[in-house]
Design a protein around this nucleic acid. Structure first.
Ligand code: MN
Ligand code: MN
Ligand code: MN
Ligand code: MN
Lengths: 222, 222
DNA sequence: AGGTATTTTTAGGCAGGGCTAAAAACAATG
DNA sequence: CATTGTTTTTAGCCCTGCCTAAAAATACCT
């Protein structure tokens, strides 16, 4: 059985691995808010357990076994997030911390029960894909709202779960997965946007727009 | 914040404390399935944190602070047990182990959400009282079914959650909290009983009857 | 290439929890 | 009351994870 620490390490490696080929010790340490030296130590242990491939000074990658645990942990995290919203009255800005702990005490039976209660959902409340029980991750291609130009019509796919405040802000603006949106104006000097969403015009800073991911529907040149 | 270990120690001390005035190191060690020496060490640490009163060779008792944590942990355990049955399709013999882990990762917000989803329940699926949010434990006086004599009519209050197999067995016999029962016959040589419950006659070993607790309704002399 | 910067690893510690074996304290008994 | 038996504590270790400071590799730049 993997420990709580091991599950968190593997989950973070999985995320950092997206795109990049190898994950550096320091990137992982930053991501986990731990000292570099602590991460070096742990990587040696994870490698000994066959969960990662680790070469001193060369960073790490997940083995199949390690990826399996990482994906399963991510699945549990996202199932819990959705369950908290749907069945326990939570809002999407309060769920991350809870799921961060619940994911580590979820048996296969409980995972199955959550999945059934939710009707085998595909996405969590932030629009992040929930891996299947077999470990397949339904990676939907989406682009950052910050990259769209005026006239673009898009469907919101997900809002990055990086900070509760961002989520509350997005929510107040009507920016939630599945909503439709049109970019009305873009201020070149700071990259901020005016968008039409839920029947009203809203202003977004570039920083906020960078954390919202959409699927382009139509690129009307405004 | 108390650790998982500390919460389990305090919970076990709370249970062992019922009736007895002080809890011995060895009783606690047995209850926790740990070596006596490990428990001695831990008791010194819990005492240092002000959670128990501990005098070498004299056993332990909970301080108010320690009792608070123990009762809160017990409340979370029992709320989870009921939640798993009511909302996630679990049966009462599968919930203890899950709750044993979930109880330690339950924030006050989550505890409140569970309580609300369940309508501030008084009892868990085994009939054990769920402490109130303020820490009051609704101790219902009940007696062991094993002690009843033929002719006694009683209402089942709880079934001890000591072993999944006992729970499955009781369930098949229709022995669940709130059910009514009448003792028909008692074999003196081994203490086993024949009882009428849910419209049928059932036989129970003395050992099983010792784990079923009832409230006497009427003592018809048979 | 040579020297400076930046990573990364090693060394040495610490806290939390656990174990076994040996010593010490308490209890019981003739 | 002295001896035997039962608890309980102490001593000495182990493992997991984390930290800081120092050393060693790797990268970068002139
Ligand atoms: Mn986590
Ligand atoms: Mn999420
Ligand atoms: Mn527990
Ligand atoms: Mn119970």
């Amino acid at each position: 059985m993997p420990t709580i620490s091991a599950e968190d390490y593997l989950k973070h490696i999985l995320k950092l691995q997206e795109g990049e080929e190898r994950v550096s010790t320091s990137a992982l340490a930053t991501s986990l808010s731990l000292a570099d030296a602590s991460v070096t130590e742990m990587l040696k242990k994870l490698a000994a357990r066959g969960l990662v491939r680790y070469q001193p000074y060369q960073g790490v990658t997940l083995t199949e076994k390690g990826r399996g645990i990482a994906v399963r942990t991510l699945r549990r995290h996202r199932l819990w997030e959705l369950f908290l919203v749907r069945h326990l009255g939570y809002s999407w800005d309060q769920i991350h911390e809870e799921a961060e702990r619940l994911e580590h005490v979820t048996s296969e039976a409980l995972e199955t029960a959550l999945d059934r209660a939710l009707g085998s959902p595909q996405f969590d409340p932030h629009g992040d894909p929930i891996p299947s029980a077999e470990g397949r991750v339904h990676g939907g291609a989406s682009s950052a709202l910050a990259a769209l130009r005026p006239g673009a019509v898009a469907k919101i796919r997900r809002v990055a779960d990086v900070d509760p405040e961002l989520l509350r802000h997005a929510d107040r603006l009507g920016i939630v997965p599945e909503a439709s949106l049109e970019v009305r104006e873009r201020l070149d000097f700071d990259g901020s946007l005016r968008v039409r969403v839920a029947g009203g015009d809203r202003f977004l800073s570039a920083e906020v727009a960078r954390h919202i991911f959409v699927e382009l529907v139509e690129e009307r040149s405004g």
